[in-house]
Design a protein around this nucleic acid. Structure first.
Length: 458
RNA sequence: GUGGGUGUAGCUCAGUUGGUUAGAGCGUCGGAUUGUGGUUCCGAAUGUCGGGGGUUCGAAUCCCCUCACUCACCCCA
């Protein structure tokens, strides 16, 4: 052997990650749950290319966009970029295909996106977004549905303790109008978004300096953002503060409809909060805005955010295409669930291991595995006749919940051992290749009692 | 992008004002135990000290550059 000088160091790019089975299993389950939920509301799957013409992606063209965009010239001399979200590709997609799509068009899209930004905990350069949007309608029905989908999605994932904070940008817009501040909205909103983070005084100070408004005006905006209580209380307080401004009144009325509609649609009332301070930091949204926070881990931020935008595809078509949608922050949610110990720590997707005990009876183990699989159980057969202790250790460390032990005695007597690996107990089950029912029932009873955290839908 | 912190065995870390052969715990592997795993005991292996360059008789230790991770800020269509 020569020295290892010529070896290439195995490594991944900054902000890009490998996913080991233990990370990938809950990840796939989460995506599967999201898919099932979206589909149950009639959202249809689409996909778009990872690469787009640069002009498609940088159409909105801020400096920030340029800095974060992965861009290059392809071998044909075209300027191209990698998508940095799923909304801009959706806009292009809608403009290009709307003629052959029914409106309203409801789609979901689960796919990786890329941003060349600096990494932080939970923020990477390649990450997956789970988007669902409805385009082509301004109906409040779509607004309501977005809230209901978020509620259903979180519940399906197995999270019960969370709050969906809802706001309507029209209210702020209306109040800013009445204060004569409509031209300062972007700066004011940006500051407002920091309210929970830096507190009232600093927020007010920042508004005065960076948005260039008066202290009184800042105070008025902040008073609006500090309405708390039940949705009904907030709505009535807002009406008083907003006075007669028509835009704000319209926004308040719509919020009221969204809350009552969402409850009728199945969302739990105690999870809905109206919060005028959420502004999403963007001037992108024009109507309803939502963010979703975990009761047990609010510091991690919103795990599912979205809102309504007036004209999604204005850059690409003259056709008016209003839209509304939200995005599940898959990576952020996984980080949170890991911290809350809601994720199973397993590196096998199959709960049952058949130990290979008697190498002379390979065919019997294979038949047993086939019989169990035909009953819907995921089963692995150990590949070598190693010491039983070593096989059980393998099973335990990989996260199997059940091990089947069958040696000469068992095969001759027609009974096999079924070990519950978590509780360290064993039971006996009758087994014949043509009569696996007793064994199946024994395995099921162990799996049913398992305390292992699971994600619904698995 | 700005500023701070950290990189030593598979993991968590120790390593004195620069000094000889870089350590511990856990884990791993082998054995006690050729049909039963998380305990115990015995034994063993393992390091480009993140990488490159410099200062020095001598560098894990000091200096420069670089890469990665991390915290805060900026930003987040």
């Amino acid at each position: 052997m020569t020295l290892n000088r010529s070896l290439i160091t195995p490594r991944t790019l900054k902000g890009f990650r490998d996913y080991l089975p233990e990370a990938m299993i809950p990840r796939e389950r989460l995506m599967q749950t999201a898919r099932q939920t979206f589909r149950s509301f009639g959202f249809a799957p689409i996909d778009t290319p990872a690469l787009e013409y640069l002009e498609v992606l940088s159409g909105k063209g801020s400096d920030e966009t340029d800095r974060q965009l992965y861009r290059f010239t392809d071998n044909g001399g075209r300027d191209v970029g990698m998508r940095f979200d799923l909304t801009v590709p959706l806009a292009r997609f809608a403009a290009q295909h709307i003629a052959s799509l029914q409106v309203p068009f409801k789609r979901y899209h689960i796919a990786p996106v890329w941003r060349g930004e600096n990494t932080q905990a939970g923020r990477y350069r390649e990450f997956v977004q789970c988007d669902f949007d409805t385009i082509g309608t301004e109906s409040v029905m779509a607004d309501i549905e977005m809230v209901v989908v978020i509620d259903a999605l979180m519940s399906a994932i197995g999270i019960e303790r969370f709050k969906i904070r809802i706001n309507n940008r029209q209210i702020l817009t209306g109040v800013l109008e009445s204060l004569g501040l409509q031209d300062h909205s972007v700066a004011v909103l940006r500051s407002l978004d920091k309210l929970p983070k830096i507190g009232r005084e600093k927020t007010a100070a920042e508004m005065v300096t960076s948005a260039n408004i008066s202290a009184d005006q800042a105070d008025a905006v902040l008073r609006l953002a500090e309405c708390t209580g039940t949705p009904d209380q907030v709505l009535s307080t807002l009406s008083n503060i907003a006075g007669g401004n028509a835009t704000a009144a319209q926004g308040i009325e719509r919020l009221s409809q969204i809350v009552s509609g969402a409850i009728a649609g199945g969302a739990k009332a105690q999870r809905l909060q109206l919060d005028v301070s959420i502004a999403r930091g963007l001037d992108y949204y024009t109507g309803v805005i939502v963010e979703t926070f975990l009761d047990d881990l609010p510091a991690i931020g919103s795990v599912c955010s979205g809102g309504r935008y007036d004209n999604l595809a204005a850059l690409f078509t003259k056709q008016h295409l209003p839209g509304i949608g939200a995005s599940l922050g898959l990576d952020r949610l996984l980080t949170a669930m890991q911290q809350l110990e809601l994720l199973p720590r397993v590196s096998t997707p199959a709960p049952v291991l058949i130990t290979l005990f008697d190498d002379q009876r390979r065919d019997d183990y294979l038949r047993m595995a086939a019989a169990l699989r035909s009953h819907g159980l995921a089963v692995e057969v150990y590949s070598e006749p190693k010491k039983l202790g070593a096989q059980l250790k393998y099973a335990d460390e990989k996260g199997f919940e059940v091990a089947i032990v069958a040696g000469t005695q068992e095969w001759e007597s027609g009974k096999v051992q079924v070990k519950d690996l978590k509780r360290k107990i064993a039971i006996t089950a009758d087994y014949r290749h043509d009569r696996p029912d007793d064994l199946v029932a024994a395995i099921r009873s162990i799996l049913d009692e398992s305390t292992q955290p699971r994600i619904a839908g698995t």
